[in-house]
Design a protein around this nucleic acid. Structure first.
Lengths: 252, 252
DNA sequence: TTAACTCTGTGCGCTATCGTACATAGCAGC
DNA sequence: GCTGCTATGTACGATAGCGCACAGAGTTAA
């Protein structure tokens, strides 16, 4: 294989007629909205490896790629990582801006060099902020849900069944009134996407460590603090982000 | 462990003063919006195992749980599954309704029995539909992104490195102009959250099967059709859903 | 040309998880 | 109390992926 010394040089031919409509989302807008929005777009270069934002950063811009690819990457505490999503000319980077969360728990990094148009986040928000309270609440919740999904993906990749079971128990507990769950190991296995036997073993270990009691479809968490220790970071990340996005009064 | 013969019986004590505000999202709304919305809410029982919607179903209602838990579950072609997300009194089921997609690729199933309030989807949409075209486009894109994340989670759980590499190559290819990627195996490994050696081995197998050529940071896909065969269902699912949600003209 | 560096290939022992099979234990209904 | 069903426990070989170590191949710079 040869002849790829300058793989992106063909893009120079395209530069001449670069236009925002090379991004599918921008292209899908009506002429009216395009006329209102396009004057505020700024064409920017997207070199390989450029970080658009880090986990927790408040975003200033949304980016509409034309011929680059950007990865949404989750980086764990120990440094290992997993890609959550890929964005190209078909999408945009920065949904958190109009979702209302302002930041996310992932990093956005350019995976294939090229160009994009960026738009000051405030412009986009201005476009939305006329709208109702209900909408904004729903959007913020959606972002929390997205965070949970992203973390599930990471957890599936990197953590042991015991850690995932701990995370799962905590997530369920947070949505119940007491420390008692009605749930068979078989069903938990379906949820986690693992064998039932794997759950049996992990539950046995949690029991030996004095964290849970259980019997035929009933699970009682007896030491929640320790369960949180045994869980991976995923639980805490999701909880913190959910609390940030939806700072509602404490659970009753 | 005993004394759990009727685990949910304590909820009977709560039934007396059931109110929509037991759901955090509904509770977070202003009195004004609550007054407009609450008359349309209908309290419904959520028995264990009840399926609120299947993958692809058009949703009629959004559900606001008060004391039940609902799992968003992705079911694969071979029947195995993985939970994508959990929803309780902190959230709602049916974001696709206001996202604009009407349906999702996951199943919603009651994991812990209880109650919820439901709202006819059209009511919610009426509340949103006054708003702009840009908003709706952004929301639909967000749903496509959510689909991709959910599928990443499933893929991480169930599929081999070779399948995931195939999926990843296809996702990248769709966002480029030719069949040529500039990407080291090391970086791909970071993206997939696996060892670099694992990528080397999988890439070697793809090469032996005549699907790709590669050399030091360059990958050329020579047989895309076969690559799609070798990929897991995840690629096709994401592509189909993205095309459904954002039916924009074919890539140039 | 040589040196330094980066990327890729390969081997090896280790571990978690899988697939399968079967044994036991708790609960429900007759 | 017996029967049958469902949930849980356990064992065992197979395997995918890991961590590590190092070799070779390609690329860049001196």
């Amino acid at each position: 294989m040869q002849g790829h010394s300058q793989p992106l040089q063909n893009s120079t031919a395209i530069v001449a007629n670069h236009t925002p409509t090379q991004n599918q989302l921008l292209n899908a807008l009506s002429a009216e909205v395009q006329q209102r929005l396009f004057p505020h777009l700024e064409r920017v270069e997207m070199p390989l490896g450029k970080v658009l934002y880090e986990s927790g950063d408040v975003m200033r811009y949304v980016y509409f790629p034309t011929d680059c690819i950007v990865s949404l990457l989750y980086v764990m505490e120990n440094g290992s990582s997993a890609e959550i999503s890929v964005v190209g000319f078909d999408g945009l980077i920065g949904v958190a801006l109009f979702m209302g969360g302002e930041s996310t728990t992932s990093r956005a990094i350019v995976q294939s060099a090229g160009f994009a148009y960026r738009l000051l986040g405030q412009r986009l928000k201005d476009e939305f902020n006329r709208h109702g309270e209900l909408l904004h609440l729903m959007l913020r919740y959606s972002q929390a849900l997205i965070t949970q999904m992203a973390q599930t993906a990471v957890c599936n990749r990197h953590h042991s069944i015991e850690q995932q079971l701990s995370r799962w128990l905590l997530l369920s507990l947070d949505r119940l009134k007491d420390n008692h769950l009605v749930m068979t190991q078989e069903l938990i296995a379906n949820m986690l996407g693992v064998r039932r036997e794997g759950v049996t073993e992990a539950a046995g270990r949690l029991h030996k460590q004095g964290v849970i009691d259980y019997s035929r479809g009933h699970i009682l968490v007896t030491n929640r603090a320790k369960l949180e220790q045994l869980s991976c970071e995923c639980y805490a990340v999701v909880k913190a982000e959910t609390d940030r996005l939806l700072p509602i009064q404490a659970r009753s």
